[in-house]
Design a protein around this nucleic acid. Sequence first.
DNA 1: CTGAAAGCGCTTACAG
DNA 2: CTGAAAGCGCTTACAG
Lengths: 338, 338
Amino acid sequence: MTLKDVAKKANVSTMTVSNVINGKHNRVSEKTIEKVNTIIAECGYVPNLNARSLTNKVSNIIQIIISSDNANSDENYLENPYISSMLGTIEHELRNNGYYTMISSISNNTDVTQMQKNWNMDGIIFLYPYKKEYLSKLLETSPCPIAVFDSDLQSNDIINVCSNDEKGGYLSTKYLINRGHKKIAFVADYKGNHVLTSRFNGYRRALNESGISLNEEFIYNYQPSYQGGISAGKKIVADKKGITAVVTTADICAIGVMEGAKLEGYRIPVDLSVMGYDNLSLCQYTTPKLASVSQNINEKALLATRLLIEKIKNCDIPTNHVITDVEIVERHSVVSIL
Amino acid sequence: MTLKDVAKKANVSTMTVSNVINGKHNRVSEKTIEKVNTIIAECGYVPNLNARSLTNKVSNIIQIIISSDNANSDENYLENPYISSMLGTIEHELRNNGYYTMISSISNNTDVTQMQKNWNMDGIIFLYPYKKEYLSKLLETSPCPIAVFDSDLQSNDIINVCSNDEKGGYLSTKYLINRGHKKIAFVADYKGNHVLTSRFNGYRRALNESGISLNEEFIYNYQPSYQGGISAGKKIVADKKGITAVVTTADICAIGVMEGAKLEGYRIPVDLSVMGYDNLSLCQYTTPKLASVSQNINEKALLATRLLIEKIKNCDIPTNHVITDVEIVERHSVVSIL
DNA sequence: CTGAAAGCGCTTACAG
DNA sequence: CTGAAAGCGCTTACAG
């Protein structure tokens, strides 16, 4: 069943059917519109979007790229709740705006342009911060708008929705200081990662502001993963430096820290207060429930999607760079020692 | 840059370029192949798949439908780790086989055929068990193979990968019985849901087999959600029926049961042993770590994807219906009272 | 081994 | 308000 078939049944030209379908009602008489619509409904005619894309050079498909600068391409990135939650929000918003969502989790630095050209994608959203160099190279040749999250690339040609990471680190640390903690550890190998470095800078600012001098010994250079957290937690107990609280950069790492410290005999939060980061739903299921910094993931995803759609439609948007706010979510993993 | 442009540069016909691209090397001389390939590489030519789909009536796009028979369409289904983990595995396998993945989370019983026709999708995978009636209606008109998980629809026209739910309920219950438990609760409003009913049947069989008679009072008809679990946990403590262990049908519910029982003063697992279901990564982060029934989600996803691909290519596959195995994953939420 | 013709299903631009 | 022509970029089927 094609346009032509419908046209034949309605005794009109294909153009008339096309105009009815595309709502160009000023070009067709009321009577014809009705006749054509009846036939369309009867036959269950559905337009072939491949053909439409071919003529229009516009596909209404948005490509979502999931990956990391991690070498391991066999990882299932969607098992990361941060990623999958974003994807869900983005897909929902795209669909509500008449766009189709194609996803592809690619290995490091694959050529995205190829797939973009394959399908005439209208836009691309990267679900992970990519290396600056990679993105800027991509930008040069990309025929469609691109959105990304938390990138350190400074460019007016890319939509970049960032979280206020410095503030996140600051609030997390401040929250502990306000409850009497002075010996506060920071767990993350932040060097070389601008997101983690920003969070570290917030940690430093909060200490500074309260007249607590930064102690290099309180910085634990472990990966912000569960295993990294466990190692850090154990080390913190073993070190016996009088640390009473920990700032982390990931919930999963904070959970590891609690686990590691428990394994060495600490009680949480009595002996050690712990702050997470991301406020994943996970936080409610641990014992004690984990206090965390919320990134408002859904807001980030929505903002990026809406800006992308606007840019596709108008080419021009007021701003490409947005910084979203963060906030503390209180739970039971922190104790006041005032 | 189109086929035509490449052809012009190479001084050959578009057909020759097309044959080179599609690897029909018996139709082109070695020399021509080389010449064409050089030019393709130079210009970075990428075929337009919209055009190809239009002629071939084959798009290489697989549609993944995410939804539930739940009315609430605003829910972010990808926040369900079971769903997102499956999606990740499926996308990975599709990509490795040259297929493109389009996702759409739709509200209840939307007409999927329309989108299928729109893009000439080669196949459809449903990430949630749909109502029998809906699926069988869809099957009648679908022009492409369909795969689904855990459906109660009996049909040879649909790929249906099911978990052995009866065995899951059985193993879970048996595991508790083997550790001396006799008063074992079952938490889930299983009636009307064939998956949960199968698990309940397994629970009943295990009891039967051990000469423990089924006590209707030990069946707690709560939703297998966190909140449902909390309510059940509280009720179990309040009821004072001497229940020492709980079989659930979802990890999240089991976590709720632990929480509810704790809130009423029980210690877990000393006062109450709890079994989860699904073996989500969540299980490792609770206190105590949650013993669970593993569904081998990745295996299910892989099986369905591979069968679908085979069916697309060959039209004929040995079997449409596969039942995957389940197994117990031991952790610390169960104590032996022998 | 090579290529001219016709067509996939749609839309733009134009003529009436 | 209506429609015949041409084209989007590719491939199948055929002729040489």
